[in-house]
Amino acid sequence: MTQSPVIEARDVVRELGTTVKQRVVDGVSLDIAEGDFVSLTGASGSGKSTLLYLLGVLDRPTSGTVTVAGTDVSALSDDARARFRSENIGYVFQFHFLLPEFTALENVVLPLLRRGGIRDSEANARGLEALTALELGHLSARLPDQLSGGQQQRVAIARALAGRPRVLLADEPTGALDSASGEIVMQIFERLWGEGMTLVMVTHDSRFARRAPREISLKDGRIVETRSHDPR
């Protein structure tokens, strides 16, 4: 493919810590092309989450550049970055992070409504579509605490997808789930990839990491290995 990558990181460095500066991400360069499915692995504390926040425009690099969908995001203002996130990036975290006062459908629709330019009815239709695609249509009126952990995580995935993002970023999406629920989430990711979605998934579970065609391993904030796997 000759297309320019969805995400392009060049010599990205992120220092953390107030008194003692620590290079949590130390000179990472990588390209994530349209339709890629990449898993990020490494020991705990190796900088996987920090890198994901940088790629996802949540955090700014100390040095280096991150370009997402052709836009150099380090140049954007805070509000512009918020808008950019809502238009281009979907997140799934280890914990589902749903708003407890809102139903499953409302949680899915909230980011769409904030982005604007869409009628309530249309947003609701899209939200319901996203939930139905994850076999949650019948639970759309439930509050988060009336759903199981696996169902909550699927609602969070639906929320990430309802905005039709260019790329889906997931930070240990199966980490808090039992193996059956984790397997369901993994199958969803594989299906999305099959449908052309670009995915980046942080995981410490090597069985899941192997199911992505490309696995990038981090150690002390550096890329130490890139492996290809045969997708099934």
Binding site: D79, A82, R85, L98, L99, P100, P111, R114, R115
Partner: peptide
């Protein structure tokens, strides 16, 4: 704080 973080990460601005 957690809910605020969610709102911010899905595109809500500080002013919101």
């Amino acid at each position: 704080r957690r809910d605020i973080a969610i709102l911010r990460s899905v595109g809500f601005r500080r002013a919101d």
